[in-house]
Simulated scan of single mutants.
Amino acid sequence: MSWRWEYDPSEEYVIGGAPPAFVAEVEKKADELIRAAEALYLDGSLFQGENPRSEHVRLPGGMFVFLLIPRYECGYVLQVTYL
């Protein structure tokens, strides 16, 4: 399995008309979070215990909510807020 991230429930629903430059920053930060998770959980499929809590990630111009599920080796962008 390979670590990845995705929008939940869909990109269109989560992005909700945010400017492309801000979306690019969200996706860049999500990539960084997944690389960090991959280093922390070397084999996420073997992870046992409670999942980490979702986190609010602040960026210039807004924020997003990110949830990591180590067993699935996947992160989810749940909400994007553009100010």
Rank of each mutant, 00 (worst) to 15 (best):
R53I: 05
S45E: 12
P52N: 06
R58G: 03
G75E: 04
V80W: 05
A24E: 15
L42V: 14
G17E: 11
L33F: 09
D43P: 00
F22I: 07
L59W: 09
D43I: 07
P60R: 15
A30W: 04
L40A: 14
A24I: 01
F64A: 08
V57W: 08
H56L: 14
G75M: 05
G61Q: 12
V80P: 06
L40I: 08
S10M: 07
G44I: 04
E12I: 02
I69Q: 12
P60W: 09
G49N: 05
E6M: 07
E32L: 14
Y7P: 07
P20T: 09
P52L: 05
D31K: 11
E11S: 09
K28S: 11
P70Q: 05
L46S: 12
G75Q: 05
G49Y: 06
P9C: 08
E11T: 02
R58D: 09
K29Q: 15
K28W: 04
V80Q: 03
V65C: 07
D8Q: 12
A24F: 03
F47C: 01
Y7F: 15
P70A: 07
M63K: 11
E50P: 12
E6D: 11
G17W: 09
Y13W: 07
G44N: 02
R4P: 00
Y76R: 14
M63F: 13
P19R: 13
I69E: 13
D31G: 04
Y13T: 13
G16Q: 11
I34R: 03
Y72E: 15
A39F: 00
A21G: 02
R4Q: 12
L42N: 01
S54G: 12
V23R: 14
A37S: 14
S45L: 06
S45C: 01
H56Y: 06
H56P: 00
L46D: 10
P20H: 06
P20W: 04
Y72W: 09
E6N: 07
S2G: 01
T81M: 10
E12K: 12
E32V: 10
L46K: 15
V14Y: 07
Y76V: 03
L33W: 02
H56G: 05
Y13D: 13
S2C: 02
R53E: 15
W5V: 03
F66S: 11
V14M: 08
E73C: 09
I34Y: 03
G44T: 02
F66A: 13
E11H: 12
H56S: 11
L68N: 02
S54N: 09
M1Y: 09
R58H: 13
K28A: 13
A18F: 10
K29Y: 05
V14E: 09
G61C: 11
L67F: 12
P70Y: 03
M63N: 10
C74N: 09
A21D: 15
M63V: 01
